[in-house]
């Protein structure tokens, strides 16, 4: 639909298109990838073998680089860069208006920026480190306290940004319309945040403890 704006040749609709693509890309595919990634990491709690098998399965996805580029890097870069712009143009008035939703509005932007920085570091330290991605490598990485803390903050920020962003997504796409529906979805999604964050942290600890 967003494309509709561009196709209709109306330059003024571009803002609408960009915003809609931003909320969409945050969930599909970026959010989906986050879930996949968290579950893959969680195999570490089963043991190094399970984790290495999971990573191995991913390594054998056909056309991996193309898939990775189109379904992860491109949308991720778009969501991140447009998100930074959006965080910059937002106003911040939670000191004057302290309602929960307004606080979450600000946390969404704070965790977005943290996640952005975290992902750059994370990609550099793992995906583009030139190292074989296996349990031992991750174990050595997160066993350094500084790395561990950075990972911890990153996991919590990313899972919050995803869960709370999903709340917003449901509003932006007109799925949760009424006040009650929005309240229920807030409770469900904040619970999801706690569960995903816990899963991420437990996986991290599993990597540190080793085998």
């Amino acid at each position: 639909m967003a494309t509709a704006a561009v196709m209709s040749g109306n330059a003024a609709n571009r803002g609408f298109l960009f915003r809609r693509l931003h909320t969409l890309s945050g969930v599909i595919p970026v959010g989906m990838f986050l879930l996949e990634h968290l579950f893959t990491n969680a195999t570490a709690t089963v043991g190094p073998g399970a984790y290495n098998n999971a990573v191995n399965a991913i390594q054998h996805i056909p056309f991996l680089h193309v898939v990775e580029f189109i379904f992860i890097f491109l949308p991720l870069i778009y969501h991140g860069v447009y998100g930074l712009y959006s965080a910059y143009t937002s106003g911040y008035n939670a000191l004057q208006y302290t309602w929960a939703r307004n606080q979450l509005f600000i946390w969404q932007r704070i965790t977005g920026v943290i996640t952005f920085v975290f992902i750059i570091y994370h990609l550099w330290a793992t995906r583009f480190s030139g190292q074989e991605p296996n349990f031992e490598f991750v174990h050595n990485l997160v066993s350094q306290p500084a790395n561990f803390i950075f990972m911890l903050v990153g996991v919590i920020a990313a899972t919050f940004h995803f869960s709370n962003g999903l709340w917003s997504f449901f509003v932006h796409w007109g799925i949760t319309v009424g006040a009650r529906a929005q309240r229920v979805s807030a409770i469900v999604l904040l619970t999801l945040f706690v569960l995903l964050a816990a899963m991420g942290v437990v996986s991290l600890v599993a990597f540190v403890q080793g085998w």
């Binding site: 803002g15 609408f16 915003r19 809609r20 208006y97 309602w99 307004n102 709340w167 509003v171």
Partner: peptide, 12 residues
């Protein structure tokens, strides 16, 4: 421009 997409759901 200035339309519905610029809402950020702060709900004040």
């Amino acid at each position: 421009e200035g339309g519905i997409h610029e809402c950020g759901n702060a709900q004040n």
